[in-house]
């Protein structure tokens, strides 16, 4: 089958009418057919793809299955070029027409903002690609796949372990740097105990800030993985030390 996408006018209409239309979004998609009844709205791309995969729905135990779904979406659309993967019309079609059930469960619509952010692309920045409900899965796979590993999606799994990791790497410019992105994910793979830390959110912010500062006076792109690994280990050791000090002070104050 050929990969389909929406027309410009339908995408625009969905955005323009989001405010009045958002209560319709949900697992019952029957509204969509009447919404688009005027004229053909589906276009065919040149991409020939297999039938779409089944995406896992979030369960009651709080498992979102983002990592597994990223594997499925990226493997399904592996031939997509980055420029095509920036097309709002494609992601609008996949969120509304191909995976509406998954979207309703994973990203329930509570306001027009959710439609702009999760069903369409919100703005022109690269960060918007990491927010659309389906494009984020594809880009996550694209940016973290490493064919040199026994499991090429090993780092994809790490990316989705914590929301803080995704935001830090996919919505900040430093995460665009391939070797930094992979080095940070590899660091968490090697130091899984960090993920259990109460102050993990703060720790990752400090690590990325330190890397950013380092990038201000040094060219991080193209540095060998081993060098970056050493930098990260050093920064992380300092962060952990400071964190312990802060925690000790906080505990002392609490006492």
């Amino acid at each position: 089958m050929k990969l389909q996408f929406f027309s410009h006018s339908l995408t625009r209409q969905l955005r323009d009418e989001a405010e009045s239309n958002f209560p319709n979004y949900g697992s019952d998609c029957s509204w969509f057919e009447s919404f688009v009844e005027s004229g053909p709205y589906l276009r065919e791309s040149r991409y020939v793809v297999d039938p779409p995969p089944v995406l896992l729905l979030p369960d009651d135990q709080g498992n979102l299955h983002d990592a597994e779904n990223a594997r499925r979406i990226f493997s399904w659309l592996k031939g997509l070029s980055p420029s095509t993967a920036m097309e709002e019309r494609l992601w609008a079609c996949l969120t509304h027409s191909v995976f509406p059930g998954y979207m309703a469960k994973r990203w329930p619509v509570t306001s027009a903002n959710t439609i702009g952010r999760r069903y369409l692309l919100e703005g022109q920045s690269f960060a918007a690609l990491s927010r659309n409900g389906i494009s984020r899965l594809w880009w996550a796979g694209y940016l973290t796949i490493d064919e040199g590993r026994r499991d090429p999606f090993e780092l994809t799994d790490v990316l989705f372990l914590r929301q803080d990791i995704q935001v830090s790497l996919l919505e900040r410019s430093i995460g665009k740097c391939h070797n930094v992105r992979h080095a940070v994910l590899d660091f968490f793979l090697r130091n899984r105990e960090w993920l259990q830390e109460k102050s993990f959110g703060k720790r990752i912010q400090v690590i990325l800030r330190e890397l950013n500062l380092l990038g201000g006076v040094m060219i991080l792109d193209g540095l060998p993985a081993g060098t970056l690994e050493k930098f990260l280990d050093r920064i992380a050791a300092d962060v952990a030390k400071d964190d312990e000090k802060t925690t000790a002070i906080e505990d002392a104050i609490a006492i």
């Binding site: 022109q124 690269f126 690609l129 880009w139 940016l143 665009k176």
Partner: peptide
Amino acid sequence: IHIECRRNYYREI
């Protein structure tokens, strides 16, 4: 030469 595309994740040296 460091090349970065502002609208997507392309960043290469």
